[in-house]
Computed example of a mutant assay.
Amino acid sequence: MQEILAIVRMNKTSATKKALVEAGVAGFTAFKVMGRGRLVDDPAVVAERKAAMMAMAGADEPDAEMLIDGFLDGHRLFPRRLFTILAHDEDVPRIVEAIMQANRTEHKVGDGKIIVMPMLDAIRVRTGEAGEDAV
């Protein structure tokens, strides 16, 4: 048994849910979380992302540039979605690939992170089933 944690962009929540269902995942949980990844040190990529974010904010938002600079320099956290999935060992590669396909973008940054961890046990509350049967 494995636990898969997938941290994805908020706007990829629906695509991720659809990908998980299509991959045959029996169930999953999603949380709203805040975080940030590794800072990008390529000035061209930072400038490109800032321009795109400024365009989305519009001219009528007076604090937009300050907020965007805070995101890009690591002082502010980005809203993200955290999916948790319990999976049988043999299903993990298929699930991970489905998550990657649903979340890969052309932005070169911020597409998310997938963490796979061993699971010691799981118990289904309703029936008392444990281990692989509970997944």
Rank of each mutant, 00 (worst) to 15 (best):
M34C: 12
I123L: 08
I85D: 01
V46C: 02
F31N: 09
A98S: 02
I114Y: 06
A19S: 05
G24N: 11
A44K: 05
L77M: 07
E65A: 12
D111A: 11
A44D: 15
V92A: 07
D121L: 08
R124N: 08
G27Y: 04
G58R: 13
V33Y: 08
D133Y: 15
N11K: 09
P79Q: 11
P93G: 09
V25R: 00
M34H: 12
I7T: 11
A134W: 04
G37F: 09
M117S: 12
K18F: 03
Q2P: 03
G70T: 14
A30E: 10
A44L: 05
R81H: 12
D69M: 04
A47G: 10
L5I: 08
V33A: 12
M54F: 15
I95K: 02
G112Y: 02
A23R: 01
A87F: 01
R38V: 15
R81N: 07
A30S: 14
V25F: 01
P62Y: 14
T29D: 10
P93L: 07
M54S: 15
A87S: 06
H88N: 10
R38E: 11
K32R: 10
F78D: 03
M100H: 14
V8M: 03
A6S: 01
I85T: 01
V45S: 00
F31G: 04
T127H: 12
E97W: 02
G74H: 08
L77W: 14
F83S: 00
K17I: 02
R36A: 08
F31D: 10
I99M: 05
G110M: 04
I85Y: 01
R104Y: 11
V46F: 03
P79T: 08
A59R: 15
G112W: 00
F78R: 07
M53L: 13
E97P: 06
L86H: 10
R36K: 06
K18R: 09
V40P: 10
A57I: 08
V21W: 05
A6G: 01
V135T: 09
K50A: 03
E3A: 03
G131Y: 06
L120N: 14
L86M: 06
V96C: 07
V33F: 12
G112H: 00
D69E: 12
M1T: 14
M53F: 10
V96M: 04
D63T: 12
A30W: 02
M117R: 13
H107V: 15
A55V: 15
D69Q: 11
K113R: 12
F31V: 06
I115W: 04
L67N: 01
E132S: 10
D60V: 09
M53C: 09
M10F: 14
R104K: 13
L39W: 05
I123D: 06
G74T: 02
V135P: 03
V21M: 13
L120M: 08
E106F: 15
D111I: 00
T29C: 15
E3F: 02
D91Q: 07
T16P: 01
V92N: 08
M54E: 12
E106M: 08
Q2D: 03
V40A: 04
D42F: 09
A55D: 13
F71G: 05
E132P: 02
T29V: 10
A134L: 01
V46H: 00
E48D: 14
R81S: 13
K50Y: 05
D60K: 14
I123S: 04
E22P: 02
P93V: 10
A26I: 06
E90G: 07
D111F: 00
L77N: 13
K17L: 11
